[in-house]
Design a protein around this nucleic acid. Structure first.
Lengths: 229, 229
DNA sequence: GTCTATATTTTGATAGAC
DNA sequence: GTCTATCAAAATATAGAC
């Protein structure tokens, strides 16, 4: 037992270093995966970006796929957690829906790699996702489904397909966010693709679109209330 | 000159065969690229899918990148051409906007690989696109920009950013279309992701969203007219 | 036009010293 | 925990016969 007691200090030091390099790898991987996709991302490049040796990468993560899952898992787990919190709050269906959109938008901005990675994962058919990821996604869509159902029951929303509404929210939001680098580069050739739309404007537009579609033809003023400018 | 005269018949035969195998390669490539992306797509697998020898693939196309450009170019050129035609037609801004959305949706369904490939290309930042592709894309967005401007001048649409509106149309449409295989596979685990929403319903929803956002707060009945059901 | 065999390069991954 | 050196497996592309 005395042998065990001697370790703490040194362990703490080592652990902190490990956490640092591990975090650097994670961050670099997120950028690489977002910019090039799973197959396009190269392990060597991730290590280089992270400023660590390639062997270090394998010290922290079993392989490329595990690293990818770590990044993706973090995205969905975080979003799912926020959604769980959202489910506890009150308010009208319109307010809840706006809050739902805010969470998606916030997560998409908080993690710059999120939008592009999500776009790719959708195109990939969820190839790289695991059971836990699907669970988180299910939780997210379920949150939206509950809001829609509530609004529908209250006679404020049309009947709708949750997954379709979800794509109607994530699509515009993430497509716009994911194309930020591209738009920046294209500005000279395409004055139509501005790199600098304020996030608030984008979010407002998405809210307006969604509420607009769900309340089209109704006399309520909810459409104009939720997403102005 | 007599040597030249003897060729035609044989050439025709050969040409037909060539066209067939070339088309098969093109088709197989479109599927592979859509399902796995540029880096994920493997030349061997494309050849196998096409039922031709790998060497044949290189006989028809200089390399993998050229093949990719051929598929992508076809998508954008076709869509751009339809947009050019649309620019000639008349009607109210609302009608034109609906027609614009119809073109995007039609192209997305006509070429099953279009949605997924477009999602990927956006995430890639247009890495694999050439000058001509950007020209076509510019033409497409410009068509939308003109419609929006007209509606705005007529006092029927809010001021808007064309590229953002474009993402608001392509996003929901293509995300939903691109996830068809995924949804089919997930049905058992996620009853929220139905594989079978009728395209007409999806298109109507996107029209309703877009018109709804552009006319939010207005007294006009255009929102309910353009995208019902 | 079509196929076999092969050259070349890239890349994911590990062994083993420090 | 960190790095060097290296292996083994893919994967792109081509040469050359038919």
């Amino acid at each position: 037992m005395p042998r065990v007691a001697a370790v703490p200090v040194r362990t703490k030091k080592k652990t902190r270093d490990a956490d640092v390099s591990r975090a650097r790898v994670f961050e670099a991987a997120a950028e690489e995966f977002a910019a090039r996709g799973f197959d396009g991302a190269k392990v060597d490049r991730i290590a280089e970006r992270a400023g660590v040796n390639k062997a270090m990468l394998y010290y922290h993560y079993t392989d490329k796929a595990a690293l990818y899952r770590a990044v993706v898992g973090d995205m969905f787990a975080s979003t799912a957690a926020e959604m769980a919190a959202l489910r506890e709050t009150g308010g009208s269906p319109e307010v809840k829906l706006a809050a739902f959109i805010d969470v998606i938008a916030r997560e998409g901005q908080l993690r710059p790699h999120f939008p592009a990675m999500w776009l790719r994962e959708l195109a990939d058919g969820g190839q790289h996702l695991g059971e836990r990821n699907f669970g988180d996604i299910f939780g997210i869509v379920s949150t939206l489904a509950a809001i829609l159902k509530e609004g529908e029951a209250a006679g404020r929303f049309h009947a709708s397909t949750p997954f379709m509404v979800q794509m109607g929210i994530v699509g515009p939001l993430f497509m716009f966010l994911a194309t930020a680098p591209m738009r920046k580069r294209l500005m000279t050739k395409m004055p139509i693709a501005p790199p600098d739309v304020p996030p608030a404007t984008l979010v407002a537009y998405v809210k307006s679109m969604t509420i607009g579609a769900l309340t089209a033809g109704r006399t309520s003023s909810s459409a104009s209330k939720a997403g102005k400018r």
